Amino acid sequence: MSTKFRCLLVDDEPPALEILRTYIDTMPTLEVVGECHHALAAFEFLRQHPIDLLFLDIQMPRLLGTEFLKTLTNPPRVIFTTAHRDYAVEGFELGAVDYLLKPYSLERFLRAVHKVLDLEQRTAPPAPRKDPLHSEDDRFLYVRADRKMVKIMVDEIQYIESLKDYVKIVTTRQVITKQTTTALEEMLPEQDFVRIHRSFIVALKKIDSYSHHAVFMGKTELPVGPLYRQDIMKRLSKIGVSDATL
């Protein structure tokens, strides 16, 4: 498999394709290699191009997405994207990884994609594959801010703060994007970040010291929520961050 997941988008509605493209742009592990407006075109595309992940609408002209999937002898991973919930059972019976009901949010999209990534990790051969988001060097992600996609280097993130319908990402600058902390948390390498509060996610290596009630990064003090205290104390003690005032 290539470094990125090669995605084919199949949908007869241009607005639906545009939303998919926008969401996929937030995931460095995904790339769009083709778009088709009906299943027959997708069939021809798959004959000529290798695909890792298929985003497939169901109600399309000429052939339903579910019927199209039945014709494939060796289908790629499939995520159905449809406005019709009636096909959900059949979709999962056909081996779909997930079933996105339109209109779906970025957070819901990310959950579906991470199901695919988890499946690939469990079935991948022992030799590691380089992932731009989770590799040691040059890790990054894109978020929408100021009407454009802004590149954020993962290793520069100090912490993330929830601001109701928005999220503030603090590096050497501050970027505010309309997302949830949960959506961003799923995009970050778990071993490098920890949620310390309902409203805060912190980069472990940026923490200078901590107490039972707060973590400290230079002059910045962030609260530790009671529900997260046990986990954060355990993880910080393992990496040797000093106690402030316990």
Rank of each mutant, 00 (worst) to 15 (best):
C7M: 12
V215T: 10
K115Q: 14
P14Q: 14
L101S: 14
A145N: 12
E161S: 08
P223G: 06
V224N: 02
K148H: 15
V33S: 05
A214M: 09
L54I: 12
G65L: 00
L246C: 06
A183N: 06
D155V: 10
A203D: 00
R144E: 02
T220V: 12
L141Q: 12
M27E: 09
D155S: 15
I152T: 01
T22A: 04
P128E: 11
E107L: 08
T220N: 09
I176C: 07
F68Q: 01
R62W: 13
S162P: 13
T82D: 04
H213K: 11
L63T: 09
T81I: 15
G34W: 00
G91N: 05
I58E: 03
K219G: 15
L246K: 08
S237K: 11
V154L: 15
K151R: 14
M187R: 07
R6Q: 03
H38N: 15
V167N: 05
R6D: 02
D98C: 06
L17A: 08
Q179C: 09
G91Y: 00
D131F: 04
G225C: 03
Q158F: 07
A203R: 02
C7L: 10
T66Y: 00
F216K: 08
Y87V: 03
D25V: 03
K238T: 09
A244I: 08
H212R: 14
R235G: 03
D57F: 07
S199M: 11
D57A: 11
I24Y: 11
F193H: 14
R6E: 06
L56Q: 06
I152W: 00
R47F: 00
L133Q: 13
T29K: 07
K205F: 05
K238I: 06
E120T: 04
K234R: 12
G34N: 03
G65Q: 02
S2H: 15
L54R: 11
I232P: 08
L40E: 10
Y99P: 01
R173I: 01
K4M: 02
H37M: 12
V175H: 03
F216R: 09
C7Y: 05
T29V: 04
I157H: 02
E221K: 05
H114G: 01
M149H: 13
Y228P: 06
S162R: 12
K130E: 13
V116Y: 06
E221C: 05
G95A: 06
G218R: 00
A203V: 00
Q121S: 08
E13A: 07
Y159F: 14
V167R: 06
D11K: 07
E35H: 10
E90M: 02
D231T: 12
